[in-house]
């Protein structure tokens, strides 16, 4: 498949000023997403994965200390755009986002149909009638009956609300949809239903997805590729097949081993220790403290090492295996 690159991120940094010091939430992250590809950003809480999503969509808190890097959307350098231009030409229309717990953030006094139509009417200036027609179509795509257009959020179950939020992100037919933990508060069957919707939309409309989650099992439901984050960095990025079945980074390996499996006998194993504090990061490899395979070189900060096409890992164990160095 020779798909063209939709989003390319290089050396993205996002730092927050806190009382205790500067927190390096996103620290030199590079990856790309092809057209019609689903990238899963996997990571434990506090690894910076939500900050990454916020950085891409520029929904930032006020205490940003540093925000830099290069983000290309198609041929547009979106980091170079002004706030105004970014809001007008990128947000919603080209990149849409479903925030964490967005289903609980729906406006309780506005009918859901109107809320979903909002991006169309505000960002694209559509007439009400035209917008509602598109909303109805999107509702069908995400599996919500058009009877619900006139309902209020509290009249809907959690699963339905999550589908409505999804519809809101999809209604403008963006090229890329960023989903932050879209199913983490939902039940197994609801979760499966929503993942079904995402798969179908990806297949039918060619949309790209960036899904942020801490749950390995959920990630496998959509991932073409996986980027694993640890302490603000992407430690491994690989095709789903490689990542799930032959992960290269010790952290990836241990994470995969910690996933309980329903149909296999072996017992899951835990990862001892805790991730480092983003404000007081250790020098060298950030996983070294917890890593069973650490050796002398781990005191140096590892660079992304290329293992195969589009498979990079930040670990000295792989240095020299295929030339090493360079992103």
């Amino acid at each position: 498949m020779a798909q063209k690159t939709l989003l390319s991120v290089e050396g993205l940094e996002l730092q927050y000023q806190t009382r205790r010091g500067v927190a390096r939430a996103v620290d030199g992250v590079s990856f790309d997403i092809l057209a019609n590809e689903a990238l899963v950003v996997l990571g434990e809480s506090g690894c910076g994965k939500s900050s990454l999503a916020k950085a891409l969509l520029r929904v930032l808190p006020r205490n940003v200390h540093r925000f830099s890097g290069k983000v290309m959307l198609g041929d547009t350098d979106i980091m170079a755009l002004s706030e105004e231009a970014f809001r007008r030409d990128v947000q919603w229309t080209r990149i849409a986002m479903v925030m964490q717990a967005a289903m609980n953030a729906l406006n309780p006094v506005v009918r859901v149909g109107e809320q979903v139509a909002e991006p169309l009417r505000v960002h694209m200036g559509w007439s009400r009638a035209r917008a509602m027609e598109r909303v109805a179509r999107t509702f069908e795509q995400v599996g919500v009956s058009t009877d619900f257009l006139q309902r209020y959020p509290f009249e809907l179950s959690g699963g339905m609300r999550q589908r409505v939020v999804l519809a809101m992100a999809l209604v403008t037919e963006p090229e890329l949809v960023i989903l932050d933990e879209p199913t983490s508060a939902l039940d197994v069957l609801t979760q499966a239903g929503i993942m079904n919707v995402l798969k179908r939309i990806k297949q039918e409309q060619g949309t790209s997805f960036m899904l942020i989650t801490h749950d390995v099992a959920t990630s496998s439901e959509i991932a073409d590729r996986v980027a694993l984050m640890y302490a603000g960095q992407v430690v491994e990025v690989a095709d789903a097949q490689d990542f799930f079945h032959a992960p290269a980074h010790p952290y990836s390996q241990m994470l995969m081993a910690s996933v309980p499996r329903l149909r296999q006998r072996e017992e899951p194993a835990h990862i001892p220790g805790q991730p480092p504090d983003l404000i007081d990061l250790p020098s060298g490899c950030r996983f070294a403290d917890r890593c069973p395979s650490r050796f002398g070189r781990c005191a140096e900060d590892p660079e992304p090492i290329r293992l195969a096409r589009r498979h990079h890992v930040r670990c000295w164990l792989h240095a020299g295996r295929s030339g090493g160095g360079g992103a």
Partner: peptide, 13 residues
């Protein structure tokens, strides 16, 4: 519920 597998992404549950 599927066990982690890259093939999951291509199947409707």
């Amino acid at each position: 519920i599927a066990d982690v597998d890259a093939a999951n992404a291509r199947q409707q549950r």
